[in-house]
């Protein structure tokens, strides 16, 4: 229990530091900024406590907000992702998976895992940019931001996933 908590806390700190120190400054062509910290939310196993997942989502979003001066935006988006993550995991996981199924590149296969990450990242980025811009005067800008950010983030998350060793 405590080991799980500490492991998660370590992930949060690591991802937030990588985001705040490096990735916030990455800005491909003026549009695509990767937001790697939602990898943490995609990593929860099937059957995890949904309330705990929501709280983790809120906290990691709020921490990310500190670095970008956007209080509430990432927090709201991460909470939404934490809310829908179990449902999408059910959709993309193999049908005969165990009750404590852990999503990963190996356990789901490249195709399913990629689509799983893509869906969650797309939901996150859409809400994030809609809240940030908070108007629809330049919709084409928002679309490019959302699509660019989503693709970049998913590629980075796939890279992390392929580097992790399976237990």
């Amino acid at each position: 229990m405590i080991a799980t908590f500490l492991r998660r806390l370590l992930w949060v700190i690591m991802l937030i530091l990588v985001q705040g120190l490096i990735l916030n400054r990455v800005n491909v062509m003026g549009y695509a900024t990767p937001m790697i910290y939602i990898y943490f939310l995609t990593d929860f196993a099937k059957g995890s406590n949904r309330s705990a997942l929501l709280l983790w989502g809120f906290v990691i979003g709020l921490l990310a907000d500190f670095f970008t001066n956007t209080p509430g935006i990432a927090a709201a988006s991460c909470t939404l992702v934490a809310f829908v993550q179990p449902n999408f995991l059910n959709v993309f996981a193999p049908r005969d998976s165990a009750d404590d199924f852990h999503p990963s590149l190996k356990s789901m296969g490249f195709g399913s895992y990629f689509r799983y990450l893509l869906t969650l990242t797309f939901i996150f980025q859409s809400l994030y940019y809609l809240l940030e811009v908070f108007s629809l005067t330049h919709p084409e800008d928002i679309y490019i931001n959302i699509v660019g950010g989503t693709l970049f983030t998913v590629v980075l998350m796939m890279a992390i996933a392929s580097m992790r060793k399976e237990k």
């Binding site: 309330s51 929501l54 509430g72 927090a75």
Partner: peptide, 18 residues
Amino acid sequence: NYWFLFLLLEVCSFILLF
């Protein structure tokens, strides 16, 4: 109960935002 928690956290985020 996670529905209520979800709504509560979203409300918190939006309060911060506004």
